[in-house]
Design a protein around this nucleic acid. Structure first.
Lengths: 341, 341
DNA sequence: ATGAAAGCGCTAACAG
DNA sequence: CTGTTAGCGCTTTCAT
């Protein structure tokens, strides 16, 4: 079913048919009506390829995330989806599995598929890669740092500051021997957290021990494992800052299994504020990273970029989204324990 | 950068260039080498539209799920993604938000975008809609029932039987006054669970009270609300079968807030076996619905369908995937309490 | 083994 | 307001 058949059956030219699709106001109301009804009767839908071939736009943006099973990433995806849907765009979703090679491959793929824009979450790509992409006239926005990619359009939160806030709170409510668990990925993000952690402790006149800082895979199991290593030590920490809620959940599991109480024996603070964190036992104190918002903002930025088109090379933007400590029970604070959701 | 420039620079015809892409064996090894290197130097990538226009295949399948934030659906997505990736296909992911109108709109959209296949999760589409789609020569596979769609290619689990198994287990370990919480969506799925619930109780010589069966939105909040309604009753149930882990988590929250113990005062059994369910307090007994597997199988079926091409109209297949009760602590069983993950 | 050329379905000048 | 027509970049007969 193509435009020609419609034109024939409607007794008009293909141009007119095309016009009712693309510039409906430029065609007489009654012919329009007529053509529309013919389209209907013929079950006509315009061929996407032919159209794309002409216009060189797909109406598709690509979203590349490390892991589809990570709730945090999906919240980002939701933010992106909401604006894409509103703009009548479709999303092509892909997974990198934290693998730089796979990420590059996928990006190549998107490029040949002529997506109009790409959002990369916790990307491994470097500046040079990014430059390469730009040549193809696709807009790219990054969410979160993973490598050094200054000069890119970036939406991020200040992990160092957020960590600092969390650690200060822990100190304030009386914790002294504070340890840290952090995930292998995303690297730069967690390095920032680590740095913020160490720096804050020092500034507050406390020491940290290297043996109280453990790196593991960013997963429930990773958190569990990390906690095991920590609890096995003769001189174990009395409070734990964990780089993700996911890992914190695993750590809490291990702590409970060991027979220790949270927060009385060990306090735990996570990062991300996953929805589920408010339902753990005890409810997890965590840094609320506004993922949905990041997705939203990144998508908006992307559309801005795409729409301003061939204009003068705009300066790359870096947008900082504030995160915020969400105090619940797991850290031992005594005040706000009554919240439900 | 197009095929013509490559041809010119390589001193061959476009046909030859095209051939090295599509039928590499039909071109002389040295010319091939040469052309390949020219492509490289020109950063040439074939134009997807032009190609699609000719071949009428996109290499994209669409996946339509009700909610991107639901972990269960994402596990399905992962299954689909894994086989798609292996087949070098891309996935276009969209969300229906449990809205029939939106779903139809999205399917239309996919159709004009000429995806090669569609996987619909908990679809609202009816037979007639499905017939409509088939005319467009796209393969469709459904995961899970929501409306009556016999005659479609379907991957599902037997909710009635699964529910029955769960309820029997509850009875076996001594529960008598068993209530049920179920979600508004997906409708048919939950109706099956409801039916299985009632039927099993009757078969086992127990009565159910209508006031002990509560319907709410399928979310943590919905579960919380439903539990409130149940607990407010003078004669409350002593055990709860909940149609999803998500709702069960909300219900457990309410129960704990009320000061009741799980499972001593009220036992809880969920459905889905989300990863997180094993980390709740107490760990949630639940029906393990193999979502990842369903995604995998559905995707494989879809590719089979797509590959058998224009052949004789194959009989639609219905594939049943078994689910299985996962006994943990929340139901009160005394045997297997030691599991970690 | 390679080239010439038709045409996939559509859009946007351009002409009327 | 409508029709004619030239491509968009590619694949694939059909020749050679």
């Amino acid at each position: 079913m193509n435009i020609k058949s419609v034109a024939k059956k409607a007794g008009v030219s293909v141009a007119t048919v095309s016009r009712v699709l693309n510039h409906p106001d430029a065609v007489a109301p009654d012919t329009k009506e007529h053509i529309l009804s013919v389209m209907e009767s013929l079950d006509y839908t315009p061929n996407w390829f032919a159209r794309g071939l002409k216009l060189n736009r797909t109406g598709v943006i690509a979203l590349l995330i490390p892991d589809i099973l990570d709730l945090g990433y999906m919240e980002i995806a939701k933010g992106v989806e909401d604006v894409a849907h509103q703009k009548k765009y479709n999303i092509m979703l892909c997974t990198t599995e934290e693998d730089r090679g796979k990420e590059k491959e996928q990006v190549e793929n998107f490029l040949t598929r002529k997506v109009d824009g790409i959002i990369l979450v916790s990307s491994f790509l470097k500046n040079s890669d990014l430059q390469q992409i730009k040549k193809q006239d696709v807009s790219v926005v990054l969410i979160g740092k993973n490598e050094d990619n200054t000069g890119a359009n970036l939406v991020y939160t200040d992990y160092k500051a957020a960590t600092s806030e969390a650690v200060k709170h822990m100190i304030e409510i009386g914790h002294r021997k504070i340890g840290m668990i952090y995930g292998t990925r995303p690297k730069l993000e967690n390095m920032d957290k680590l740095e913020g952690f160490k720096k804050t402790l020092m500034e507050e006149g406390l020491n940290y021990r290297d043996s109280h800082i453990v790196e593991e895979e960013n997963s429930i199991e990773g958190g569990y494992l990390a906690a095991s290593k920590l609890l096995n030590q003769a001189d174990r920490p009395e409070a734990l800052f964990v780089s993700s809620d996911t890992m914190a959940i695993g750590a809490m599991e291990k702590i409970k299994q060991t027979g220790l109480r949270i927060p009385q024996d060990i306090a735990v603070v996570g990062f991300d504020n996953l929805k589920i964190s408010g339902f753990m036992e005890p409810k997890l104190t965590t840094v609320a990273k506004p993922m949905y918002r990041m997705g939203l903002v990144a998508a908006r930025l992307l559309f801005d970029l795409m729409e301003e088109d061939e204009q003068k090379e705009q300066e790359p933007q870096e947008i900082l989204i504030q995160s915020k400590l969400k105090v619940r029970k797991s850290c031992g604070h005594q005040d706000r324990l009554k919240e439900i959701f």
